[in-house]
Amino acid sequence: MKRRNLVSASALLVLAATALAQDADPAPVSNPADYRWAIFTSCSVAFAAIIVYLVVTHNRAASVANDVAALERRLDELEGTSKK
């Protein structure tokens, strides 16, 4: 829960920083081509945040799955002994 909050908070921070940086130093409106890098970089950051979130939670799920597998093995043993 905490790590998830951290990831989303930092993603928001980076996005906000990108937006603020643009405001502080506006490119000439006549040449919107200059915005391209800023815009697509912030999009990339947003997607990167999604992907990092997916990887982090998936990793945690994989470690929980190990615990569940251990629990299942133990249950197999216990159920085996209780039946005999």
């Binding site: 799920a61 994989a62 799955a65 190990n66 597998a69 251990a70 299942e72 093995r73």
Partner: peptide, 8 residues
């Protein structure tokens, strides 16, 4: 699936 190897 095989559970013993601990993979999801």
């Amino acid at each position: 699936a095989d559970l013993a190897d601990g993979s999801v």
